[in-house]
């Protein structure tokens, strides 16, 4: 239990996925103009990453690193990048179809963001990190959820800041993306303060 908690805090806050690992920068900069859309995107990312961590962990344990195949000398783990990216792409499509059909209210709020997540590097990044750190299925899911929660925190905070920045008098060359990046730098410095926690 303590170990899981450490993984969760580490992935959500200390090694924040956006601010210290630079994964998922595209949506972080692109979809953070309003707090509501940012929260929608964050929610969709939490949903997809948690699910994909679970599915990829299952695939790794029972197919790629299958004990029987391993004992016969067949090691399929080198296929992980190819398998994961395809599984994630299919999963996102499937989730979109499922939500559209079965849960229209949830689809209304998350659906628009789902296709944007397909090539979001954070999803593949988490799946690959789970393998590198040799996490089991439960640990993978916790790590996935916590990482996505970190993304949610970062993007919602950023959207809140950006709504305020709108009213400020910013030098011309810095208007738009540049000031957002400076804000991100300051947030990143703030998050470095958590590094002593673990």
């Amino acid at each position: 239990m303590k170990e899981l908690l450490l993984i969760a805090v580490g992935s959500a806050i200390v090694n924040n996925v956006v601010l210290s690992q630079f994964l998922g920068i595209c949506p972080f900069l692109g979809v953070s103009k309003k707090t509501e859309t940012a929260a929608g995107m964050g929610g969709a990312v939490i949903f997809v990453i948690t699910l994909s961590s679970f599915v990829t962990a299952l695939i790794y344990k029972f197919i790629l690193a299958n004990e029987y195949l391993m004992s016969k000398g067949i090691d399929l783990t080198y296929l992980k990048t190819i398998v994961y990216i395809l599984v994630i792409a299919c999963l996102v499509q499937f989730v979109e179809m499922f939500l559209k059909k079965k849960m229209p209210p949830l689809y209304e709020s998350l659906g628009v963001y789902l296709p944007l997540i397909t090539t979001n590097c954070a999803v593949l990044g988490v799946a690959l990190t789970n393998v590198t750190k040799e996490y089991g299925i439960l640990e993978s899911v916790v790590n996935g959820f916590a990482t996505a929660l970190g993304f949610f925190i970062a993007i919602v905070l950023m959207a809140g800041l950006r709504e305020k920045i709108e009213y400020n008098d910013i030098p011309k060359p810095f208007q738009g993306t540049a000031i957002v990046l400076i804000t991100a730098a300051l947030m990143s410095i703030a998050f470095m303060g958590f590094s002593g926690m673990i």
Binding site: I179, A185, M192
Partner: peptide, 22 residues
């Protein structure tokens, strides 16, 4: 040291974007 850590990446890119805007 901050330039070789995470915040430095954002800072350098911010100034790059601003420079490119000019």
């Amino acid at each position: 040291t901050i330039f070789i850590m995470a915040p430095g990446a954002f800072l350098v890119l911010a100034f790059l974007v601003a420079g490119m805007n000019i």
